[in-house]
Design a protein around this nucleic acid. Structure first.
Lengths: 152, 152
DNA sequence: TTGTGATAGTTACAGATGTAACTATCAAGA
DNA sequence: TCTTGATAGTTACATCTGTAACTATCACAA
């Protein structure tokens, strides 16, 4: 039986993702007490300007209930505003309030800086190799995404 | 603000890990109703033969409470047996029962086959590049591991 | 021997998650 | 108009998770 967890692809992947998530989330959890789903909603709206809950789920690969709860929480903070669609009343257009934009403006550079710091631990050539490997992994996994499950 | 979730490293990583986890876990969840932590304990003991709960946590990078619960569950199935250490009575040596070994023997080849099938979607050269990228990622993240947090 | 600090492992609790069921709305055709 | 099936989004429920506190044991030194 030659299955060793340490060299087994899904295991290594989960471990790396968990470590990365823990290191990155420290930034926004420490500064604003945001959860991962909340941060993702903030980032999606910060980048897209406006989006529906379904659209956020598609972009951020989160389950719709997760999006629903994160949006509700951010709305309570007054960081996200809802606006009903005139034509289709099932739809709600979400966007950041000024306070939400301010928070995103404060967080985004720190997140990007940490990403750079992390990659900076490697040589430029290694960085390219890492990103190439990640892209190939996505190719093998058939990444396209919609509201998919997250744990498993 | 040029932070786009789609090109952001921790996000891509989490998404890939979630997809991989979902695809792999389908095998043991469908066939035996095992959870991820249970499968990891099974795999660790299947490979190591015998180990303590702490040792399993170190090998599989799971929190000790997770290990504790997975072991308790596998013990109820009669797949894992405990044996107290004579010299240090805090320690328990865990090992697979014949039934546990049989389950592992049935699962391990399927897991390895799926890993191969997944990598087989890439050319041999791409496979090498993927694994190289993963190793570099682990290097950048400083992977060494002990009983660390998993979500975040 | 007694006390101190460390270690192995379990459990109570609160928080996060996915599934399934639900409400409300829409589109399109009979 | 009415029905059918799809879609946007929320919520009840059970399950899973980590934190912190706990028991029990050990090593070691006063």
């Amino acid at each position: 039986m030659d299955l060793r967890l340490e060299t087994f692809l899904p295991y290594r992947l989960n471990r790396a993702a968990a470590m990365s998530s823990r290191q990155f989330s420290h930034i926004y959890r420490h500064e604003f007490g945001l959860t991962v789903p909340e941060w993702r909603v903030l980032a999606t709206l910060g980048h897209r300007g406006t989006a529906s809950a379904t659209g956020i789920g598609r972009d951020s690969a989160m389950h719709k209930t997760k999006v629903s709860r994160a949006v509700a929480s951010l709305q309570q903070r007054r960081w996200v505003a809802r606006e009903a669609d005139e034509a289709d009343r099932r739809l709600e257009h979400l966007s950041l309030t000024p306070a939400g934009r301010a928070a995103f403006a404060r967080l985004a550079p720190k997140m990007l800086a940490f990403e750079e710091e992390l990659l900076g631990r490697l040589t430029p050539r290694e960085q390219r190799e890492l990103l190439k490997g990640l892209a190939l992994l996505e190719k093998a996994l058939g990444v396209k995404m919609a509201g998919e499950k997250e744990a498993g």
